[in-house]
Amino acid sequence: MTTTSSLHNGILFVRLAGDLVGPPDTAPLVQAVNEYLGAAVTSCAIDLSDVRYINSTGIGVLVSLLTKFRTRGGEMVLINPADHPRKLLALTKLNNIFTIAADEAAARHQLTPAAL
């Protein structure tokens, strides 16, 4: 799993690639988010377009991160989940809980009111 993160106009963008299946794969994601949460960032977009596989631990981490942002009055958006993550989100009905954006521009548009 590779994780890259950047901050643009108060929105944390995290891009994941590989498999999101638990430690140690989830640790860089949680670390990146926690680092920016300390800087009072309340909006996040996580790009799942290059995530091949995700299991229940990976889903649990995403739910945990969503909770962190929402308890701070913010929001988290998932960007273009690949086939397997999209199917798992639908199977668990978490696609009704997470906001899913088609691309980074759509995520930015959805999160801009929360970032202001």
Score class of each variant (00 low, 15 high):
L7N: 10
G10Q: 09
I11T: 14
L12P: 01
V14W: 00
A17D: 00
A17E: 00
A17N: 00
V21L: 14
P23D: 06
D25W: 02
T26F: 00
P28S: 02
V30L: 13
Q31L: 12
A32V: 09
V33Y: 06
N34T: 07
Y36D: 07
Y36R: 14
Y36T: 10
Y36E: 09
L37P: 11
L37N: 09
G38W: 11
V41P: 05
S43Q: 05
C44Q: 03
D47Y: 00
L48R: 01
R52L: 01
N55M: 06
S56T: 14
T57E: 05
G60Y: 07
V61N: 01
V63M: 10
V63N: 08
S64L: 14
L65Q: 08
L66V: 05
L66S: 04
T67S: 10
T67R: 10
T71W: 05
R72W: 09
R72G: 10
R72E: 11
G74L: 03
I79T: 02
A82C: 09
H84K: 15
R86P: 01
K87T: 13
L89M: 11
A90Y: 08
L91K: 06
T92F: 06
T92L: 09
L94N: 11
N96R: 15
N96A: 10
T99K: 14
A101E: 08
A101L: 11
A101Y: 06
D103M: 11
D103W: 08
D103C: 12
A106F: 06
H109E: 15
P113T: 09
P113M: 07
P113W: 03
A114Y: 12
